[in-house]
């Protein structure tokens, strides 16, 4: 059953068109790995799905409900939560306060502060610390926890491993594991192709704002994704378009 439908989406930063004619449907429980080189438009796409950046053209439907022009603060109430690139915590506020802010939308569900602390036990001793003083791993856990507090139907994760040491990344993914297999619909942006394909059921590769590959993970090899990643998958990819 389709939960999220993206249709011919164009998103601009001023004159620059960062997302071009992107379409895909997501079924409930899908874990989509969204890959692509730096500047491919992944962050812009996720931000427009979360409502932080309204698209120039195209449509976004959630459960057949039009939400293309719904602003971010109402979208989270409809069940789409973004863990933004660079974590974007409120640095002057404590871990607990950041988590409580995640509850603003008031969506009913199972996530509570205590459940976040049991999912991310490394946060327990930091409960009353300002997030500006946390380590990268602790910050990332807080950012994920904050998004979960809204009990989302769709969770968008933008480069959760950015700036973390490999050991800490392993830990964050271990903590995410139950989530990834729990039936929550997830879009995951991840630079590490191996890791992304390891947890996802489907992969979309973006190149210069366009979708150049969209396939179930089981039907595709890492090599093919790498080729698409660098724009080598077809001789005539239309890369000259601007």
């Amino acid at each position: 059953m389709t939960i999220l439908s993206v249709q011919n989406l164009d998103v601009r930063h001023g004159l620059l068109q960062a997302v071009r004619d992107v379409s895909f449907d997501l079924a409930k429980g899908d874990v989509l790995a969204l890959v692509g080189a730096n500047g491919a438009g992944k962050t812009t796409l996720l931000r427009s799905l979360a409502g932080a950046h309204l698209p120039a053209a195209g449509r976004i439907l959630l459960n057949d409900q039009e939400l293309t022009l719904v602003p971010s603060h109402r979208r989270i109430a409809m069940g789409i939560a973004l863990v933004p690139e660079g974590r974007r915590l409120f640095s002057q506020m404590t871990v607990e306060e950041n988590l409580l802010l995640g509850k603003t939308s008031g969506r009913p569900g199972d996530w509570t502060i205590d459940r976040v602390f049991s999912a991310f036990p490394n946060l327990v001793p930091r409960r009353h610390a300002k997030t500006g003083h946390l380590s990268g791993g602790e910050q990332q856990a807080t950012a994920i926890g904050r998004a979960l507090m809204s009990n989302p139907d769709i969770l968008l994760l933008d480069e959760v491993s950015l700036g973390l040491s490999p050991l800490v990344v392993d830990r964050v993914y271990a903590q995410l594991q139950s989530l990834l297999t729990s039936g929550t619909t997830i879009i995951l942006v991840e630079q590490d192709l191996g890791r992304a394909m390891g947890v996802a059921s489907r992969v979309i590769c973006m190149l210069e704002g366009r979708v150049v590959l969209d396939s179930p993970v089981k039907n595709i090899t890492r090599d093919q994704v790498t080729k698409a990643y660098f724009g080598l998958h077809r001789a005539n990819t239309g890369r000259a378009a601007s």
Binding site: A52, G102, S105
Partner: peptide, 13 residues
């Protein structure tokens, strides 16, 4: 502190 992120957590800035 950050109106953009405030919107993302559900606050009408």
């Amino acid at each position: 502190e950050d109106p953009d992120t405030a919107g993302l957590v559900g606050i009408d800035a």
